[in-house]
């Protein structure tokens, strides 16, 4: 899948999980840019993304992302 397509789907997951339909994410977005995205919701986002794409991240991968772009690349590398 292209990164842009993954981004679109991930954006929908953000909207659902964070319960806020105003959320727009880009590759450069970080947790600081999204009000509801904190340590508690982060883990819920990860779980939702794993379920949606039927993939599994390692703990190291989850903790290495510095922005949405790095997370998308990681999803793509899983063969999505």
């Amino acid at each position: 899948m292209k990164i842009e397509d993954i981004l679109k789907q991930v954006n929908d997951i953000f909207i659902d999980t964070l319960d806020n339909d105003q959320v727009i994410i880009t590759e450069a977005t970080t947790a600081n840019d999204v009000e509801e995205w904190d340590s508690l919701t982060h883990i819920q986002l990860v779980v939702a993304i794993e379920k949606h794409f039927k993939i599994r991240f390692t703990s190291k991968e989850i903790q290495s992302w510095n922005n949405v772009g790095e997370m998308l690349t990681c999803i793509q590398e899983k063969g999505v």
Binding site: S39, L40, H42, I43, V46, V47, S59, I62, Q63
Partner: peptide, 21 residues
Amino acid sequence: LTDYVFTPLSIAFRDYGSWGL
């Protein structure tokens, strides 16, 4: 503590839903 204790733990427990959290 969030960075070095809570986050690694919540990742490890993520399969257990609300109880893991």
